[in-house]
Simulated scan of single mutants.
Amino acid sequence: MAITLSKGQKVSLTKGNPGLKHIVVGLGWDTNKYDGGFDFDLDSAAFLLDENGKVNADTDFVFYNNLKHSSGAVEHLGDNLTGEGDGDDEQVKVDLSLVPQNISKIAFTVTIHEALERRQNFGQVSNSYVRVIDEDTNQELLNYELGEDFSIETAIVVCEIYRHNGEWKFNALGSGFEGGLEALCKNFGVNI
């Protein structure tokens, strides 16, 4: 049975799931009524961060133009350009055993592509969620619904997984940013 989390909650991923190695982080969303003439293209990404919350190199940013981390630990499964259909809109696979030791957490984000030009924001997005699946058993371990707390934001740090005392934990963040992907990259130390 999956654990349902609220914003700000933290839970251990590995303590209750000994031997957990391969996870899939699935992100999904719907758009509210919108007649601006453009599709909503939401993009997920993963930032592999050190203990200071920064990338060690620009390649620690995994997204639609850099689908796989050099360590093999994190792989983005591809860009969904419209968010149509049921289920996860985008997924990121993580092999916890391959995460380099200098990486203390992985932040998962969602941004709106060309949000400024298209006059789009997360106030126009509904039913957004993240879930973590044990890839080896296909069992959903936890889910977190972001709710409707956003208005002008164009980027969200949805959640993070992080190391703590030899275990991997999950933190339900739901932190909004203005400035889209560029703001997130600057926040995490990626050169753009």
Score class of each variant (00 low, 15 high):
Lys93Gly: 09
Ala57Asp: 13
Asp89Leu: 07
Glu75Phe: 08
Glu51Gln: 12
Asn56Leu: 13
Gly83Trp: 08
Asp58Ala: 07
Ser70Ile: 10
Val99Pro: 06
Asp79Ser: 00
Asn56Ser: 10
Ser97Phe: 08
Val74Ala: 03
Ser97Asn: 09
Val92Ala: 03
Thr59Leu: 07
Gly87Val: 06
Phe61Cys: 13
Asp89Met: 04
Asn52Phe: 12
Gly72Asp: 07
Thr59Glu: 10
Gly53Lys: 07
Leu98Lys: 10
Tyr64His: 05
Glu90Val: 03
Gln101His: 11
Gln101Gly: 14
Asp60Arg: 02
Asp58Ser: 07
Asp95Cys: 15
Asp95Lys: 11
Leu98Gln: 10
Lys68Phe: 00
His69Ala: 08
Glu75Thr: 15
Lys93Ala: 13
Asn65Cys: 00
Gly87Cys: 03
Val74Pro: 05
Asn56Val: 08
Lys68Trp: 03
Leu77Thr: 01
Asp88His: 11
Phe63Tyr: 10
Val55Arg: 01
Thr59Cys: 04
Asp58Gly: 09
Leu81Asp: 06
Asp60Trp: 02
Asp95Gln: 12
Lys54Ser: 02
Ala73Trp: 04
Asn52Ser: 13
Glu90Lys: 01
Asp88Trp: 00
Asn65Glu: 08
His76Thr: 05
Asp89Thr: 08
Ala73Ile: 06
Leu96Ala: 02
Leu96Gly: 09
His69Thr: 04
Ser97Leu: 14
Asn66Met: 01
Asn65Trp: 00
Leu98Cys: 00
Asn65Lys: 04
Asn66Asp: 11
Leu98Asn: 02
Asp79His: 12
Glu75Asp: 12
Asp89Tyr: 03
Val74Gly: 03
Asp89Pro: 00
Asp86Lys: 11
His69Pro: 01
Val99Trp: 05
Pro100Phe: 06
